[in-house]
């Protein structure tokens, strides 16, 4: 089980801030494929991965990252701090 969290327009498009996902995926990309296959709102949110960033256990990483032992995956648009 992995906690999946969403921020900004990703959260709005998917319609929830956080969920627990029972997944067989071994990478972030695999998790994205599983989620996208669920419903259109996921497929829409993940339609352009170049517009998304991902953090695994609160560390920025890329979509090839492995999910072995991971507790939390976060998806969000490029950050706009400062």
């Amino acid at each position: 089980m992995i906690d999946v969290v969403y921020f900004a327009w990703v959260r709005e498009r998917i319609g929830l801030p956080r969920e627990t996902v029972d997944t067989d995926a071994t990478t972030v990309a695999g998790l994205v494929a599983e989620l996208s296959a669920r419903e259109d709102r996921y497929a829409m949110a993940f339609s352009d991965l170049s517009a998304l960033r991902v953090a695994v256990d609160q560390e920025l990483t890329d979509f090839d990252a492995a999910l072995d032992g991971v507790r939390e995956v976060a998806f969000f648009p490029p950050m706009t701090g400062g």
Partner: peptide, 9 residues
């Protein structure tokens, strides 16, 4: 901070 701190405006 602009591009790597997790804030969204």
């Amino acid at each position: 901070l602009k591009s790597r701190a997790p804030f969204w405006k």
